[in-house]
């Protein structure tokens, strides 16, 4: 297993992170934007696990549990917010949720 160099994992996680950022910036559906954010968090998890495994230091893996817990809490709150919006306006398109202008 250790024959796969660390850089491969880091490049993969960097790629996932970039896909997440691009998804947040160009997609207009609130749910898809939220999924892109989850992708960013998971790429960070992958980075943490990679470093943890290659450094032989277990802290990173413990950290991943914290991140997963927080991501679950965030998902609960985020989906509740999106449902509240949908009940009032029957859409989750970010471009249509714009009553504030300057």
């Amino acid at each position: 297993m250790t024959s796969i160099p660390m850089e491969y994992y880091l490049v993969l996680s960097g790629f996932m992170f970039s896909v997440g950022i691009v998804g947040v910036l160009i997609r207009r559906n609130a749910i898809v934007v939220f999924m892109s954010i989850e992708l960013m968090l998971n790429s960070a998890n992958l980075t943490l696990v990679t470093f943890s495994s290659y450094l032989g230091n277990v802290t990173g893996q413990v950290f991943v549990f914290f991140v997963m817990t927080v991501a679950a809490a965030e998902a609960a709150v985020g989906l509740a917010i999106i449902i509240a919006i949908f009940r009032n306006k029957l859409t989750v398109d970010i471009d249509k949720i714009n009553i504030f202008k300057w």
């Binding site: 954010i37 943490l48 965030e74 949720i97």
Partner: peptide, 30 residues
């Protein structure tokens, strides 16, 4: 609805910022 909109904008951008924070922390840890 104005509260819903505020909440969603805060949530999406706040979670986006969290993504940066946690990725940065992962690199610092590494």
């Amino acid at each position: 609805f104005s509260a819903n909109e505020a909440s969603m904008k805060y949530f999406l951008l706040g979670a986006f910022a969290t993504g940066f924070v946690i990725y940065g922390i992962a690199l610092i840890y590494g």
